[in-house]
Design a protein around this nucleic acid. Sequence first.
RNA 1: GGGGCCAUAGCUCAAUCGGUUAGAGCAGCGAACUCAUAAUUCGUUGGUUGGGGGUUCAAGUCCCUCUGGCCCUACCA
Length: 698
Amino acid sequence: MTERRILVTSALPYANGHIHIGHLVEYIQTDIWVRFQKLRGHRCVYMCADDTHGTAIMIRARREGRTEEEVIADMQKAHVADFAKFDIEFDNYGSTNSDENRILCEEFWQAVNDAGLVTEREIEQFYDPDAETFLADRFVKGTCPNPKCGATDQNGDACEKCLMTYSPEDLIDPYSTLSGGKPELRKAPHKYIQLEKLHGFLDEWVGSGEHLEPEVANYLKGQFLSDELRDWDVTRPPKYFGFEVPGFPGHSWYVWFDAPIGYLASTRQWCDRTGEDFDQWWKNPDTEIHHFIGKDITYFHTLFWPGMLKTAGYNLPDRVHIHGFLTVNGEKMSKSKGTFVMASTYANHLPPEAIRYYYASKLGPGLDDLDLEAAEFVAKFNADLVGKVVNLASRSAKFVSEQSLSESYPDDGGLFVAAAEKGEVIAEAYERGNYNGAMREILLLANAANEYIDRMEPWVLRKDPEKAEEVREICTVALNLFRQITLYLSPVLPQLAKQTGELLNNPIERWDQSQTPLTGTPVSKFQHLMKRIDEKQVQAMVEESKEDNAADAAPAGDSAEAAAPAEPDFHPADTWKDSGAALEAEPMSEECTIDDFFKVDLRVARIIEATHVEGADKLLGLTLSLGGGETRNVFAGIKAAYEPEKLVGRLVICVANLKPRKMKFGLSEGMVCASGPGKSEVFLLSPDEGAVPGQRVH
RNA sequence: GGGGCCAUAGCUCAAUCGGUUAGAGCAGCGAACUCAUAAUUCGUUGGUUGGGGGUUCAAGUCCCUCUGGCCCUACCA
């Protein structure tokens, strides 16, 4: 195998927020790939950095009364600490707000200017005089200009109510979300990169079939390359937290200009620290560049970024690995449901191995979204890793504990050799990002190993002192198969690999160790390698996330405001602003399917008789007609709220197929639908004019 | 409005270039075992591959169409 030189990056996390479990999909995915390449003996480095520039950071710093530098320094510390908790190991973790990055930005800028790609235009945009900054569309809100709509608090680009699109300048009574003040229109010059001039190159790069999954290439061809590429606005007028553009005083590069250059800047930092040659990594065609990103930033990494690299004379990405989003229980992560889980919150409750393995077992090469489901998460970890893999050591190591493995590898019926041969299939799956396939293959090996132990029954042989050597041989096989499996899993589970190395007194360092059995080494005293997890831990994590998010929801930085109860967030069209008390008193049930709903047969019914029930405090006896002579006798707990005589003749909604229930006063054959907390506060449902008894409610 | 992707067992996913009877795991059911963290092993139930049409000797796979879902865009990129 020839040694490859590979430089890998993950997208740079933004310095305005903490790492959450959605981010982790990407960093874990990348870390696994990097560990895999290193294990294979390739020269591979993993570069990342914090993305620090932009309006959001500037505003936050002001709000907190600190400098931007203080804000981003704190956040970087937090990010680095979070990643470490999950065994995500960077070769260098830098910052886009570094000298290295500024120098490289200037170099790229020179290159795009020299190539004649830069043009300048003046544009008119809203400006917030209080915040002293221009406002991107998302920082302007106002009243929808559609005369038929007029919804308030709409975003600068489109109305959520009537779906009309417009420019921020069209809004009636616009206001800045930064200061709340009224913005004014101002003109400012912007520099643009004419990407269209690189159209031919990009067609070729995207179309080559080597750098992108076909579905991504199709998307780019359909969405962008089929048309003229628009100029890219890469500078921002003051004030903006970023690097000043040479020859353009006061103006900064847009955050998306300097962010990807941060990949190089981080590499530069690493080279300066380690004495590596920067050009060997970024200007050597033999070096492979691999970017891992989420599908939301595809555009930047597949059109703009290759264009920049090409123009500046650097290596182009060999592959852009694009993943989907994380959903939790099939939905977007939700703060109110507690499924928006910060990495640090996760780490308070659950082991990093669990989420590393879970993501690995779900990730494929494509950009499908990945769903995290509590029960499946717990089951996979316990069943696959504890039950199948770790169990191999657990059921064999103690028989040879503090002895050593056999001096020569015994006959195992070809198991070790078969698993060694599987190594290439597994490696190929890792290489392609098909971790899900790799995990499946590895688990099959664990299955075979468990079968072997079952078949050999060392616990039976052990009772016969004369068969001690045989037991030792069986355990030598079992532990070798176990070691082989943990080696294959080691990119995903570095801790387990390390523990296995300690158990067998031979560290796992190279992939090819999977090809040769280990013999003669001492076996350490066995100790638990992994602890089972419980769904309760997941629930506790969700609860803590709810609390975190409730705390976050209060305005930060001002303790007086923070103490006040949070304002409910009403829909713009909601002029009634009803209290949330009822919903809070009786929270929403879990989701049901349409089939679940159809089990309940709701019908319009007419009350044809209503009587007091002798001896009942709360009940009225109702006779309901479904029409055509079909009737139901129903006892309803509505006596405190309704007088029987006033009910006769009116239409209600009843559950017509409810299993009849025997009561003290007779048989109740259904129920009538009503809302309210009870007692006198009961409100019967009735259909609108025109409904007739017997109609089903859909 | 324009564009991309997806739909396979109750759930999560496989199925090479179009090629035998569409396979695993989990869950379910039935056994065995008792070394192991209530772990393991064996057997078994479960499918009109979202609907319809077409191409082909052959379609989960290719083409058309409908339905449902996700995402990107909508004259910012």
